[in-house]
Nucleic acid binder design. Structure first.
Length: 488
DNA sequence: TTAGGGTTAG
């Protein structure tokens, strides 16, 4: 009965029943224990699970692999990967299921390198034959590390042990190829799959998302397959559709899908909000934020990246300030580099250099030179040479070999007619041996046609989240273009 | 008679 409850998803009932059983002095056996431990992993009951671990030990069940695997899994699902690993290490005769449980314990907490290392170690030591469960986690690790070569080796193993028809393995392969940037292979695996599910479709859509601006036709194709299936709605597929259409610039189309959705969660809202923001729909982004809150979904870190990005690009200074404050004060979200980047951009463009400067000085990210570079760029526009001197000095302290602080400061001096100061900075740069970094150029795919672009912009377009490095790169690139003819 | 591990979206 106890295991029956766990099986039908009523884990809480199984625990209640366990306590009744103990109350009536009935001794739990191995079956009881493995079932209640599983209930603990499902319910996230870590301390209770630890208690059962003690019971397992006291009753001498610690050599029972089924029970130990349930414990490893319980620790893994509760994000205690080191406990899971330790337990495996204590096993007398570990088996492949316990090995897979450890691997998934690692991938669950983003320890992909460790997951792969553990996989190869156990392969060598115990010669376990990986099965469909192992492949799922291993491919996830390869994908998240962007290891195409390793992923292909695992794919070969999948074929070797004959697991190609499994829908989970297939979906994991599609996802791995997509994350490694090999859209062709992702599509190839997808087309060869006889059974597909919502996960397969989302994985392929995500692969198209990584491809950037040229994916709209393929996305529509997947969308049609989804619609043809009919009868079922899937929140992950639909959120991925909102995301991919937004990224392709088809923002109205994305919005239509979004409006037609029966269920929306935090990710769905964020896809829509970030999509609107990136497509220059400032006011609509703010309205979406209001709707989200009204519908009872609490905004998070990513929501505000979208909102502040929208404010900065639409020049909505007051709204930007208001939302930045509400993010920290009302929602208790600690502002990150992305948020500060938007604020510097917003305030800088509005000429509020001092306000942006004091915001950065008060922040935890005041040592991030890319933020100061952005602010220095804003000084150039507003021709504020006093602030520029101060900010350039700060930047030179943080990154003495970055040519941008010299170039931008000299530009500001020149713009306000301080020619001798401009020459002085140029000379200082030469004396210190600071070299200008020439950005690499490459072909990028924009709306299906190849354009000579810049590797930095390519990295930006392809990054799932515009992280601080990507933003720094794009700023670097833009500044280099602006500085090229002007100064050096 | 009853017990263990896997994949997707911002």
């Amino acid at each position: 009965m106890i295991s029956g409850y766990v099986k039908i998803g009523k884990a809480r009932n199984s625990l209640d029943l366990y306590w009744r059983m103990v109350g009536e002095d009935v001794e739990p056996n191995g079956f009881t224990l493995s079932s209640v431990i599983k209930a603990c992993s499902v319910l996230g009951e870590l301390s209770l699970g630890r208690g059962f671990h003690g019971v397992v030990f006291r009753r001498g069940f610690d050599t029972n692999n089924v029970i130990v695997s349930s414990l490893i899994d319980m620790y893994g699902k509760n994000k205690e990967s080191s406990d899971a690993l330790r337990l495996f290490g204590e096993m007398v005769e570990p088996d492949s299921i316990c090995c897979t449980s450890v691997i998934s314990a690692c991938t669950r907490v983003d320890l992909y390198e460790e997951a792969l290392g553990f996989f190869y170690m156990t392969q060598r030591k115990y010669r376990f034959v990986p099965d469909e469960y192992t492949f799922g986690s291993i491919l996830m690790a390869c994908g998240n590390l962007g290891r195409l070569k390793q992923g292909k080796e695992v794919h070969a193993k999948v074929i070797l042990v004959g697991e190609t028809s499994n829908v989970v393995v297939g979906s994991s392969l599609v996802d791995m190829y997509g994350k490694c940037g090999s859209v062709t292979n992702a599509r190839l695996v997808f087309d060869r799959m006889t059974r597909k599910n919502a996960v397969t479709l989302s994985a392929l859509l995500n692969a198209y998302c990584q491809k950037g601006l040229a994916a709209v036709r393929q996305a529509k194709e997947v969308h049609c397959q989804y619609l043809r299936r009919g009868g079922w709605r899937d929140i992950v597929v639909e959120s991925a559709l909102v995301d991919v259409y937004s990224k392709c610039g088809c923002i109205d189309f994305a919005y239509r899908i979004f409006k037609q959705m029966v269920l929306r969660n935090l990710v769905t809202w964020n896809s829509m909000i970030c999509g609107l923001a990136q497509n220059g729909r400032g006011m609509e982004t703010l309205k979406a934020l209001n709707d989200m809150i009204e519908e009872g979904t609490v905004p998070d870190y990513i929501t505000f990246v979208g909102v502040l990005f929208a404010c900065s690009h639409a020049g909505l200074v007051d709204e930007g300030r208001k939302n930045f404050n509400s993010m920290t004060e009302e929602y208790g979200i600690k502002a990150g580099v992305e948020h500060y980047n938007c604020m510097v951009d917003l305030l800088g463009r509005a000429g509020q250099i001092e306000e942006a400067e004091s915001l950065l000085n008060k922040s935890d990210v005041s040592t991030d030179s890319s933020l100061w570079a952005a602010l220095l760029g804003a000084c150039a526009t507003s021709r504020n040479s006093t602030a520029a001197e101060r900010i350039a000095k700060k930047m030179m302290e943080l990154e003495p070999n970055n040519h941008l602080s010299y170039v931008l400061l000299a530009n500001v001096y020149r713009d306000v007619g301080r020619w001798s100061d401009a020459d002085r900075i140029r000379k200082l740069m030469q004396d210190r041996g600071v070299k200008k970094i020439i950005p690499g150029k490459s072909w990028i795919d924009i709306q299906g046609s190849l354009t000579l672009g810049c590797v930095y912009s390519f990295a930006y377009i392809n990054s799932k989240e515009p992280d601080s490095q990507a933003l720094a790169n794009i700023k670097h690139w833009i500044m280099n273009i602006y500085c090229d003819d002007d100064m050096m």
